[in-house]
């Protein structure tokens, strides 16, 4: 009784500060032959203006977890709440930027793409136009506002997707490996731009990646997930200035995380029976 009460109190205290909370979430999905457990009892809090990175090797369920936060998947166990309300389905309070370039509507111009979610959700036309043009300017695409998505490069398409999500002013911005399909130079530029954007707007971000370097650069807080099934291995603070990339402290954190990921993998492979 006493224990339960204190646990409740702790949960209530957490809710007060956390914008969003993932509590003991187990996720499963079916493939034609298997029922796969993607994450097992994952708990984490997301605070306002956090840049929370979900980092892990492939198969740690990080993308699945992000999809559950977006509302595409219902947890088998545990709850996901935003501002104290449980997530029941996808919605514009949690806009998502996907990895694939085909997330833009090809039949709409850049401007119309950015305006579309706002119009669907009842933002008046004039206001939507103003917010769209602000967001497009923020991602440096003002010159391409009237272009169709097929005329843009991959990096530009991702910028439009970010602008589209930001213009909605969501509670949380979800990004699922948004730069994984970009070349290294563009990726680096996009990471810097994202940080600059955060400096200007201070939004809340949940970012999925499998790159340790990207996690350290982008994140203010890094959740390291272990694979098969995904469990929280560690939660670390990051927060390097953009020009710290490659410095000794940066290197140290990289090494620490890669030890976490690869040493675990080595032991799990050693103990796993041969197939």
């Amino acid at each position: 009784m006493n224990h339960a009460q204190s646990a409740n109190k702790a949960a209530a205290a957490r809710l007060e500060t956390a914008l969003m909370s993932v509590d003991g979430v187990t996720l499963q999905y079916k493939t034609p032959n298997h029922l796969v457990t993607a994450t097992y009892r994952v708990s984490l809090d997301i605070h306002k203006t956090d840049r929370l990175v979900l980092l892990g090797p492939s198969g740690c369920g990080k993308s699945t977890l992000l999809k559950a936060i977006a509302g595409f998947l219902t947890p088998v166990e545990g709850t996901i709440t935003v501002k104290g309300k449980p997530v029941t389905g996808p919605g514009p309070d949690r806009m998502m930027v996907f990895q694939e370039f085909d997330q833009l509507l090809p039949w709409k111009t850049v401007n119309a793409n950015v305006m579309f979610p706002m119009l669907v959700n009842g933002v008046p036309h004039e206001e939507a136009r103003a917010r769209a043009s602000d967001a497009i300017t923020m991602v440096n695409l003002a010159k391409f506002a009237d272009a169709y998505p097929h005329m843009l490069s991959g990096g530009m398409k991702q910028r439009v997707a970010i602008a589209r999500a930001m213009a909605m002013k969501p509670d949380v911005l979800l990004m699922d490996e948004p730069y994984a399909a970009l070349d290294a130079l563009t990726r680096r530029k996009m990471q810097d731009e994202l940080l600059q954007l955060w400096q200007d707007v201070r939004f809340t971000l949940v970012f999925v990646t499998h790159s340790i370097e990207e996690a350290i650069v982008v994140g203010s807080r890094i959740v390291v997930l272990s694979p098969h099934p995904g469990q929280v291995r560690a939660e670390l603070n990051s927060g390097f200035a953009q020009n710290d990339r490659g410095g000794p402290a940066f290197q140290q954190l990289t090494t620490r995380i890669s030890h976490m990921l690869f040493d675990d993998e080595a032991t799990s492979q050693a103990t796993e029976p041969a197939r």
């Binding site: 996808p90 919605g91 996907f98 085909d102 669907v120």
Partner: peptide, 12 residues
Amino acid sequence: SETLRMAGRTFG
């Protein structure tokens, strides 16, 4: 594509 469907659903 699944991405386009999911994008549409996040718009509500």
